[in-house]
Write a protein that binds this DNA or RNA. Structure first.
Lengths: 212, 212
DNA sequence: CAGAAATGGTTAGGACTCCTAGCATTTAGT
DNA sequence: ACTAAATGCTAGGAGTCCTAACCATTTCTG
């Protein structure tokens, strides 16, 4: 095993430690009633989709099986946080919408000092950027290995122009909002995301992975 | 909400995405039989402790309750990967040791291309370093909030000298091995870790969080 | 156009991890 | 010596995840 491998192994171990910690604690908040992470993720998705989402769509975006998502939906339904409507376009499908109580719960999730946000609160912009950058790369790698799909990352988006020559602080460019931006503004789940074609995705991945 | 908060919220969302992905997939390997993450973590700990560890110790290091750890130990025992021995020093306690089969399983975990390692395999040294750095900071933050304790990070170690004036590639110094090292060599679970006292911990945290 | 195949979603059953409580045993403190 | 704290365990419950089996509905195909 060479030095690089050793480093990666250590990094993997470090991430495992962090994951174990978060697995145990992420959905426990002292002040507010517990909100399990998958249910929170569903609420977040629905909050950005006024006309609702289909179950399969959500499952794919979260990278879980349809059956798993169905479990979470059942739990949310039991709390009366969501509603289901038949999909007008496809009688097999249902559209899931936030109910009134669900909207309240989703709004509470926007608090930046909740859950994970509390751990991040003292990171400066540079470290946030580094983290976002790594998240993009790891999700890309997971997608390449078939572990994930449907993630709406900048790195997989057709509007993304990595290192498009802007300033050192804002080296990237988003062709949707037509603005330069930096690592710290990278999104792992952007509402405006549109998947890039294979060619652009590959070129962007190359360029992004090895900054000039 | 200011820009920084927005960035942190986005970063939290990004991390959530990654966590959801890993929650679903981390313990699934196509080629080898599944090894649940907590059980893997226990094996890793035991592999570095020839004379065994006590259950409470492990629970603390992982940041889970003693009851949770007991579950995982039961599962490992069912696979005959661990042995339990009465602790000679304390008749209430038991020491947990790797059995022969457990040693084999633990050795397989060292493969850098297993599980998380596979996602990290294309990160370069700089990104690994950035990731390790963030992991240190997040674990520190979790400790400060009482979510964790017992993590053997560099940042909480009395031998750690952050930004002790070495080269740009190896700005830190470890007073145990008496070597300079860089972010990419930071450890989240170092066998030689000894907890720093409150004063040193605070000074190190300050210095580490804001690189010169 | 009728039957076959694919798709969307759910339930059933099993595994893993986590928690809080309550219990027994042992150790430590007064 | 007697209480108080600790160690570890089981019980009970929740959440997340999977595969497999099952409908209902589309869509493809001969």
């Amino acid at each position: 095993m060479n030095d690089d491998d050793r480093q990666r192994q250590q990094a993997a171990a470090g991430l495992e430690q962090l994951l174990a910690l978060l697995r145990a604690q992420s959905w426990r908040d002292d002040d507010t009633p517990a909100l399990p992470p998958t249910q929170a993720a569903v609420l977040r998705m629905l909050a950005d989709a006024p006309q609702g989402l289909r179950a399969g769509q959500m499952a794919q975006r979260l990278g879980v099986s349809a059956a798993s998502l169905s479990d979470s939906l059942k739990a949310l339904q039991a709390r009366q946080w969501i509603q289901r409507q038949p999909d007008p376009d496809d009688a097999r499908a249902t559209r899931v919408l936030l109910a009134r109580a669900g909207r309240r719960a989703a709004a509470a999730l926007r608090d930046p000092l909740r859950g994970l946000g509390r751990l991040l609160q003292h990171l400066d912009s540079r470290d946030i950027g580094a983290l976002q950058r790594v998240v993009q790369l790891l999700i890309l790698q997971a997608q390449r290995q078939g572990l994930a799909s449907g993630h709406r990352t900048c790195l997989g988006c057709r509007f993304f122009r990595p290192y498009a020559g802007g300033s050192a602080e804002k080296p990237h460019f988003c062709a949707y909002v037509e603005q330069p931006f930096g690592d710290a503004e990278l999104r792992a789940d952007c509402a405006e995301h549109e998947a890039a074609d294979a060619l652009l995705a590959e070129a962007n991945a190359q360029r992004f992975a090895q900054p000039p």
